[in-house]
C-alpha cells in the first residue's frame, strides 16, 4: 500500500530497479546513472519526510506495514510468554501482554494489537479494546508489580471500542480504574505511542514514568476525522482538524505532554522495521536503567507531579 506522498519516491525506486536489471542483462556500465538516481531518491526522501504535514503523519501512523505491538515484542525478546484473559469475562485479543526477556532482564510488555489483513483485523477488533482488555492490562500490571518487574506499554489504538457490550461492561470505569491504579504502581512504567494514540482508549495504558512517541505517530483527545465531524459537521476537514489539535509527536513534546520522541528510519518505521525495533529496544533499556536508579516512592511522586502539572490556565 502506498500513501500519495510515497508514490513519487516509489516511482524513482522502480526506475532504479529497472536500470539495475537492464545493466545486468546488457552489461552496459550504468553505475554513474545508478549513483545519480540513488542520490536523487535520497534527496527526495529527505525533503518529503522533513516537510510532512500533520495529516500525512497521521496517515503514516496508520500504515498497514508498520510494526505492531507483537512485532516489537517478538523482535526485542529472546523469550516471550503471552498471558491471556481478564479473569472475568474473556480474553480481549486487541490488548496483548506477557513477560518477555531482553538481555536477561524480565519485562512486562502490554499493548494494543492491530491486524494486517481482514481476518486479523477482525480478530484484533482493529486495535479497539473492550473493557476486559483494559482489565486484562491492569491484571498484568499488578502482576508485574507483585514480582517487581518493570512495565512497558505500547499504545496503538483508534480508540476504546464504542459498542453496546462495552458500555454494559463499563468501558468508562475500566479506563478510569487503570488511570488511577497506574499512578500507584511501584515498578517503573514506560509508555510508547507506536502508532495511533486516540483519546481515553490510549490513555488507559499510558500513565507512566516516561511517555514517548515514535516520530510518525499521533496522540490526542480525538481523531482528526471525528473532530472534523463534530466541530465542522463534516468528515472533510480532517486535515484542518489535525493542524488545529496539533496531534504530532513534535507538538506533544512542545506542550510538554510527553517526555521524548524516538526517531524513525527515513521513510517511516515500516520501511526498515528491524532498524526501528532495534532503536526502540535500546531506548527502552536505557530508560529502564535511568528509572531503576530512582526509589519507588519517589518515582510515584514524580509520576503524579508530572501529570498534575499538565494544562494551561490563566488566573484572572
Amino acid at each position: 500500500m502506498l500513501l500519495d506522498f510515497e508514490q513519487p519516491i516509489a516511482a524513482l525506486e522502480g526506475k532504479l530497479r529497472e536500470m539495475k536489471k537492464l545493466a545486468e542483462d546488457s552489461q552496459v556500465d550504468v553505475s554513474e546513472a545508478v549513483k545519480a538516481l540513488e542520490e536523487k531518491i535520497k534527496q527526495l526522501k529527505k525533503e518529503t519526510y522533513a516537510n510532512l504535514t500533520r495529516w500525512q503523519r497521521v496517515q503514516l501512523s496508520r500504515h498497514a506495514d508498520r510494526p505492531y505491538t507483537l512485532d516489537y515484542i517478538e523482535g526485542f525478546t529472546t523469550k516471550f510468554i503471552e498471558l491471556h484473559g481478564d479473569r472475568n469475562v474473556r480474553d480481549d485479543k486487541s490488548m496483548v501482554g506477557g513477560f518477555g526477556e531482553i538481555d536477561g532482564r524480565t519485562i512486562m510488555f502490554i499493548g494494543q494489537q492491530k491486524g494486517r489483513n481482514t481476518k486479523q483485523r477482525q480478530l484484533r477488533n482493529f486495535g479497539m479494546p473492550n473493557p476486559e482488555g483494559y482489565r486484562k492490562a491492569l491484571r498484568l500490571m499488578k502482576m508485574a508489580e507483585k514480582f517487581n518487574k518493570p512495565i512497558v506499554t505500547f499504545i496503538d489504538t483508534p480508540g476504546a471500542f464504542p459498542g453496546m457490550e462495552a458500555e454494559e461492561r463499563g468501558q468508562g470505569e475500566a479506563i478510569a480504574r487503570n488511570l488511577k491504579e497506574m499512578f500507584m504502581l511501584k515498578v517503573p512504567v514506560i509508555c510508547i505511542v507506536i502508532g495511533e494514540g486516540a483519546s481515553g482508549g490510549a490513555l488507559g495504558i499510558a500513565i507512566g514514568d516516561r511517555v514517548f512517541m515514535l516520530e510518525n505517530t499521533w496522540y490526542s483527545v480525538i481523531s482528526p476525522e471525528n473532530c472534523s465531524t463534530i466541530l465542522w459537521r463534516s468528515w472533510d476537514y480532517k486535515e484542518q482538524a489535525a493542524d488545529a489539535m496539533k496531534v504530532t509527536a513534535k507538538d506533544m513534546l512542545e506542550f510538554k505532554l510527553i517526555d521524548g520522541i524516538i526517531k524513525e528510519p527515513l521513510g517511516g518505521a515500516h520501511t526498515e522495521p528491524e532498524k526501528m525495533i532495534n532503536t526502540l529496544r535500546k531506548h527502552i533499556l536505557k530508560t529502564l536503567d535511568e528509572l531503576e536508579q530512582i526509589p519507588a516512592q519517589e518515582r510515584i511522586s514524580q509520576r503524579i507531579d508530572n501529570f498534575s502539572s499538565m494544562g494551561v490556565v490563566q488566573e484572572l
Binding site: A244, K246, V247, F255, F307, S308, G311
Partner: peptide, 14 residues
C-alpha cells in the same frame, strides 16, 4: 484543548 484536555483525565485520577 486537544492533548491538554486528554491529560486532565490523568491529572484528576492522580
Amino acid at each position: 484543548e486537544a492533548g491538554y484536555s486528554l491529560m486532565q483525565m490523568a491529572k484528576t485520577s492522580a
